[in-house]
Design a protein around this nucleic acid. Sequence first.
DNA 1: TTGAAAGCGCTAACAA
DNA 2: TTGTTAGCGCTTTCAA
Lengths: 343, 343
Amino acid sequence: MAVIKKVTIYDVARESGVSRQTVSRVINNRPDVAPETRTRVHEVIKELNYRPNAIAQSLSRQKSYLIGVVSAGLKYIGPSVTLKGIVDQAEALGYGLLLKTVSNFNDHDVVPILQWFQSHQVDGVIWAVPEIGENRKWLDHKKITVDLPILFMAMAEHKSVSIVCIDNILGARLAVRHLMDMGCKHIGHLSGPLDWLDARERKQGWHLTLSEAGYNVSENMCIEGNWSSKSGKKAFFELIEKCPNLDGIFVANDQMALSVLQTASELGISVPNNLKVVGFDGIPESEFYSPSLTTVYQNLEDLGCTAVNALVQLIEKRNQTNYEHEPRIIRIQPELIIRQSTQ
Amino acid sequence: MAVIKKVTIYDVARESGVSRQTVSRVINNRPDVAPETRTRVHEVIKELNYRPNAIAQSLSRQKSYLIGVVSAGLKYIGPSVTLKGIVDQAEALGYGLLLKTVSNFNDHDVVPILQWFQSHQVDGVIWAVPEIGENRKWLDHKKITVDLPILFMAMAEHKSVSIVCIDNILGARLAVRHLMDMGCKHIGHLSGPLDWLDARERKQGWHLTLSEAGYNVSENMCIEGNWSSKSGKKAFFELIEKCPNLDGIFVANDQMALSVLQTASELGISVPNNLKVVGFDGIPESEFYSPSLTTVYQNLEDLGCTAVNALVQLIEKRNQTNYEHEPRIIRIQPELIIRQSTQ
DNA sequence: TTGAAAGCGCTAACAA
DNA sequence: TTGTTAGCGCTTTCAA
């Protein structure tokens, strides 16, 4: 790897006998440059192996083509896949990514992060942290002195905030309707931790769908897990004890659902004959378990991609004169994948 | 969210009746400022809610406190956990992260990525892409005109390159020795895809350990998977057919190992009685399967953390006068977690 | 201890 | 079509 002396726009200008401004025009593909000049400058650029300094450009333009992303729970697969969607689409649209994480889902020091982003001139921010407990409360603090387009993921409607999220209620409906279609009469729910918005929405979807169809629903038929395999096992034991006549169960994520399948097998409950199980997520393992798991697939990569698109729209709108903030909420539709655990 | 007019160092200087340089000294905690002056400036900073513009600082200092990270396979849990380790440690050391990904493990356009990082003035780069096939070949191209400290993860020794990686051979040794200790006589291996360095090293460790101990080893006792559950199932079928007397198997990752457990159960092979199984990775699910999976745990968060530390050392060394590049290779030691699948 | 001047590398506005 | 002049916001000499 050769050590290269830094080549600036000035060197290029000197070598090609034009002003820096002309070089600037060339690298920015402006129309007002004579073809021969352009060619010559391009040659010199190639010869000197010149690359514009993005930092200097950002400073000068007051625009960085950088997006700030705040992520949480990167050691879980969901947030990671979402991040992948974000990175790829940002790349596609010519934006780079500045990544921050919040370690704890609840207790973030929001302001320093936003200020850090702001001081780095990011053009916008994607807040890819699930809504848990009170972790959106800061939005109401009037003293947040940061002026940046922010796009939120996975949160409840909130005054003048743009959001991209999975339609959890629809997903739950698909799952529960399918169980009803397959003849289940007593459909329970193993929920995620209910301080999570996603968990609450999935539970709500389960409840709505059953009650609208005139089925019997009670709190008794629902039990709370914490997304993990371990909690799934424990919760399933309790649920089956509370409701011995359960013949269908909608589980709020696949990890717990796989755990249910396994526990059921240990208890001698035959799936799908005696119990039908639907998960949520669509993790790869769900396909190869036996029985394979019927699940509600959420396309998290698409979620991330959509978030970037929406944010870039916000950014571009802001650059226009007649800028007015009309918040948007985009819900990504999940889809049901039917496999052995319900057939 | 209030719209805030941009406050610059100049505003602070004016308000506090000093020069910009003095303000600069205060925000950089330089010693040569009179206490009263410092206090006054601090007050004004607070009052105006001033934050230094990181972009301008980077440009002026020729140093950004930013690290470039190239990641691959973010939709898998391993790379994501590693990334988490990187983010956290970078944050701890006061560095921000600029994230790029390569979609395909093999075919990266390396140069544009490095140039992009360089033009953004990153202080160093972590190349968090596993070594697969020929994807390190570009290191030998002398025409790479980028001059940046780079730290590589998961790659074979390479002239004058610093590396942080998992000690796969040690991990494999731990696994195989344990199987020998548990009385296995015919120990097979289900490898990862052998164009991956990690897969090759794990296989090598298996082979070495057995042959050194005077056990019978042949290519026949090894079969190649592609890390996925699906491939694990298929490979296991084939292996058990080739070697019906197998009583122990070291599987190169947990996904495939769990698949082996399940397939064994379907085939009526009792684990651990007739067959003992050891995986590699230490994914959470391995603990809750039944039987729970003995596995070689690799602390990927630690791996990422170590990579950042090593890179920052490289960066700081480079700033010293007597800078000489002495490449380091750091191997993180994995550890064996013994569970039911081998007892 | 402080400030003036120059510059980091680039772009915007204006003039030619 | 091109160049000149001012910045963008900050830091680094160097002088006072």
